[in-house]
Design a protein around this nucleic acid. Structure first.
Lengths: 179, 179
DNA sequence: TGGCTCATGTAATCTGTTACATGATTCT
DNA sequence: AGAATCATGTAACAGATTACATGAGCCA
């Protein structure tokens, strides 16, 4: 596997502007990074402990409204580590679409079943595209903030590829349609 | 993890028309499935043994040109298992692009470095797109064979999304360009 | 002869997810 | 009161990659 999800740098990246609890980090991953990344508590909490042990973040145990929290803050060393990773070339870009695997072996399933997979895919994309488009529109209105440009890049990536997907869905149905 | 690479069904899918050795299965994964799937020997051979033990494939040890080979053949039970998986809805489509993660945190790296990541991405896509386009052209010429339609679906998916990527690269550079 | 491809396999290692365990507060 | 959310964490388990180990043919 070799560090697939890069939870270490994901956490450092999310902490680079704000201090956060592990729980908040999870929420951020599930919202802001949702379309291209994921991570579970079982991976976040142990990574936070390792990062703290190695001096990349510091922890502060507090109580807010009676709730015990551990708020993490990135250190200088943490910033360096993040920058180092950011400067390094991309190691792995991987598209892992089970849908494509099912289409590739579609001959075994037949036209009807394969069309259903395409339809399911299309429905999912059609449902998500408006959200991404809204995201783009919103970010385009607040570009004075330098940081937003970078968020816009990833949101636009989603919109562009999703539009490509929908075009492909049309082609795909035609290919299977003319028997 | 929970069966990420679905090596079991990948193998059954590849064996559905031809008998193959583990080595040949690996080659097929690295060529035909290359753009959306991967797998290593350390995962293929153990899976083949399990599949054989459970009656989804049969093995035949032979010698060809003095080379010992184990040729695997799918059974009826194997076909059923494959069809069952094919009929089930897609569980997980995951895009895992480290590039997007680096762009999202790009504010920490700066414009120059981020542009470099985009350029690297573009170069890779530009290098691969012609291969996929050739693939599509070739498959479109031999569509009488029913099976080829399904291969065409996945190849076209690649072409369509790659074109979307290139369009995005242009946008992305503009976003970072106007400071 | 040396290097590449064919061919099979195992073991160490990594690390991620799932499920479980616990408990407080806030909303309805 | 009960459900949902906030909040932290561990342990079992799954499964994938890497590196190692071995050996035979083929080509230059």
């Amino acid at each position: 596997m070799a560090n697939e999800k890069r939870m270490d740098v994901v956490i450092l990246g999310l902490l680079r502007h704000d201090t956060m609890t592990g729980y908040e980090i999870k929420k951020r991953i599930d919202t802001a990074l949702k379309y291209f990344w994921s991570g579970s508590f079982g991976s976040i909490y142990p990574t936070l402990n390792t990062l703290e042990k190695d001096g990349y973040v510091t922890k502060a145990e507090t109580t807010e409204n009676g709730r015990a929290k551990i708020i993490y803050t990135i250190t200088e060393k943490g910033h360096s580590r993040l920058k180092e990773w950011l400067s390094a070339p991309v190691v792995k870009d991987e598209l892992h679409y089970e849908t494509l695997l099912k289409l590739f072996f579609g001959g075994e399933l037949g036209v009807e079943g394969t069309l259903q997979h395409i339809q399911n895919f299309e429905d999912k994309i059609r449902g998500e595209l408006p959200i991404l488009e809204m995201c783009v529109a919103q970010l385009e209105g607040i570009l004075e903030e330098e940081e937003h440009k970078y968020y816009l890049l990833t949101a636009k990536f989603g919109v562009e590829t999703y539009r490509g997907y929908l075009k492909w869905c049309k082609d795909a149905k035609e290919i299977l349609g003319k028997e």
